[in-house]
Design a protein around this nucleic acid. Structure first.
Lengths: 408, 408
DNA sequence: ATTACTTTTAAAAAAAATTATAAAAGAATT
DNA sequence: AATTCTTTTATAATTTTTTTTAAAAGTAAT
């Protein structure tokens, strides 16, 4: 019985024995995917099945081409073990990272390597059939360019901003033109299964699988770009809430006497800290003659956007640093609320502002020290992502594999 | 092989076959505990084992006295099924609900019935060996009074306020005199396994097992008494955070220009909403001649405490209701933050203030409507606990059984 | 190099669990 | 009341999985 390795998991009408065997296959593949090449003996320990059984299952999987012999490993005092690994070319995953103005596409093999990567700038997200069509066109052209047969694609993982109900495959904020749900519409048109989630949550999955959250159980991932997104790993699992609305960190109340937010409420964190506000404030200051590196950027006719601001900060521009510090004070306040509520072991800052590195970490840390109960906050490490701009894209891969290899 | 039914789960040095059999027993007992009497056929469906196997395991368990024949059930079109249920007298659980001024003790049988219940007032919690000794004495006297042999007690579940690291069995805030950790010290002295957790989290477990959170996956439980506690069920699991510090809802920032909190920070939610503040404000008002039912209580030399205030509210006392409303406005603000972050399906209010029923629910709902993004808040139901003062005690039972019957 | 000890792998024997089959007990229909 | 159809339970047959045993392939020490 060929390994299905996918959404057929809960297929009804299939004999129990088939389901059982598929689950055994999945356990082995799962271990090899998450831990790399291993010997039969190692797999036995990890999957809690007997050695003859594991040996025969591995044999099957080799026969189907899903696993490969990976030579012999080092001895630890006896016969040297035969190692096995996943055939990274057995299947592929398409990753789609949708941003407000940019589209990132990638194709991953089963060793998580990007065998294709493309960034399309000025690909502005809008709720129209045209956008949907050109998105599909982009993916199709990538598929035909690569020449890999369609059935080799395990799934398409998508990251998109806004409110997303991953379970149902719905995107509420963007691309609601897809009437039967974005995941289904894209899946039908591409002929490949589609898995959808919100950008911040996808980033969190990326960090958990490939970034600083590996082996951590309670991690918060902030997506600091134009807005503020939050993806949470709690008890080792992604938290999405009842409808997938969890993580609206940008709209928690920070200043009751603050400004009106576009969400209709007053004093939201996003009215005080966000890439958008930072850029806006700096642009105004430049117009008012504030001396800063960014003023010279403007003279050179370079656009003052978030990327430029971060660049100026990294070059030590005092005014931009001051502006960032001010925002980090508020961000720290907000984070303290999070930490008090959730007691995470790590907070990872991602998004465009994460490029500023210690220029964000340090002032946020200071602010947290000021506002948090130290017994709690001292348990939480604050770091910048090292996946940076790749975290959402890597997250789509992580999301697909998590779904495919889940054990229930 | 006798069913161990307990902490021996991960015992090393035991043959794999024994572990497997114990797990099979556990699956069956688990189903019967959580779903009540069932036929072999029903169990087969639930535990995904074959009918002959389940039949033989049930046979074993009956032989050990853990299960009982529960007669024949109704036919649904064929032979009437034999039903089996847990022998509720096979083992017992001791529940200990430690409050600042009261101690609640109970002994549960395996049908969750309290076969013993005792409330001790004026049992003031303090960090002393005397307290520890008298607590143990109380438990011991209960044990000898009941005459059930010690080995019949599965475990002692404890609920205690403050910071608790359940995994390690440590109580940081209270009873830190127990040097090797409260759970171990008590366990050694009582000769029974001890399971510890924070009061708000224990309440959440109680609500999930026996209250309004049954069958819900994302539920927040507020313990509104003198302080504010929060227990969270996320993705169907209790969330404790890295060190068990999660749930410090009382110390999130609400009013940056507010009062100093005893925790050292400014403008914490607990400086604005808490039973303590409510009572304090009302006492001051009474002293200043405010007309209210509670003034007459004072004349009758009755103490104005939280219980009295709630009673006055239920009798329609306008001043007390006003005071509560004011607090609920802040509480609603705080809850909005929670809901935006976690997108729960339900928020359950427990603790002494929950006795006020709609007098809390209505103003909090109003406040939430005012401050929340309606798309998110409309997905969350706000209710009062119906376990009320029993929720923590019931939670200790839930906690023990959850631990005993967990499947990993 | 020889010997003793390990670990890994394979194969045979034993045990466990499932599927298939049949019998028992009752419901529904004629 | 007799017949047919269900569901439940018990038993037998078969398959699956594990345990046991042995062989293969290496390390480490004498």
């Amino acid at each position: 019985m060929r390994p299905q390795f996918l959404y057929e998991k809960n297929l009804q009408g299939v004999a129990n024995s088939v389901k059982r065997k598929q689950e055994q296959y999945r356990k082995i593949v799962r271990h090899l995917y998450y831990n790399g090449a291993a010997s039969i003996a190692e797999i036995v320990k990890a999957v809690k099945m007997s050695q003859p059984l594991v040996a025969s299952l591995v044999d099957d999987l080799m026969g189907y081409g899903m696993l490969l012999d990976n030579g012999v490993g080092e001895s630890i005092g006896g016969r040297r073990p035969n190692l096995f690994c996943i055939n990274s070319e057995y299947q592929y995953v398409i990753g789609v990272d949708i941003n407000l103005h940019t589209l990132n596409l990638a194709v991953f093999d089963l060793s998580n390597k990007q065998i294709f990567r493309e960034e399309t700038k000025y690909f502005d997200l809008e709720n129209s059939d045209e956008y949907l069509n050109s998105l599909i066109e982009k993916i199709e052209s990538m598929i035909s360019q690569l020449g890999i047969p369609r059935e080799k694609y395990l799934a398409v993982g998508i990251s998109i901003p806004g409110l997303v109900d991953a379970k149902q495959g719905l995107s509420h904020t963007h691309l609601s033109v897809a009437e039967n749900g974005l995941a289904r519409v894209l899946g039908d048109r591409l002929g490949i299964n589609v898995l959808l989630d919100n950008d911040a949550r996808t980033m969190a999955l990326g960090e958990k699988a490939f970034g600083k959250a590996i082996d951590k159980e309670n991690v918060l991932c902030l997506n600091l770009s134009n807005g503020i997104g939050l993806g949470m790993i709690l008890n080792g699992e992604l938290h999405s809430g009842k409808n997938g609305f969890a993580g609206e960190f940008g709209h928690i109340l920070i200043d009751p006497e603050g400004k009106l937010c576009y969400c209709g409420k007053i004093g939201c964190l996003e009215t005080l800290t966000s890439g958008k506000i930072l850029v806006k404030n700096i642009r105004e200051a430049v117009d008012n003659g504030q001396p800063t590196l960014l003023a010279s950027y403007k003279k050179e006719n370079r656009k003052i956007d978030l990327r430029a601001v971060v660049e100026a900060i990294l070059q030590g521009d005092q005014f931009a640093i001051d502006q960032l510090n001010q925002m980090c004070e508020y961000l720290g306040k907000g984070l303290v609320t999070l930490i008090h509520l959730l007691n995470p072991e790590m907070v990872i800052i991602g998004g465009k502002i994460a490029h500023a590195g210690k220029f964000v970490i340090d002032p946020v840390t200071m602010s947290m020290n000021k506002y948090a109960m130290s017994r709690i906050s001292s348990e939480t490490e604050l770091v910048c992502s090292d996946l940076l701009d790749d975290s959402a894209l890597m997250g789509t891969m992580a999301n697909v594999m998590r779904s495919v290899l889940s054990l229930d």
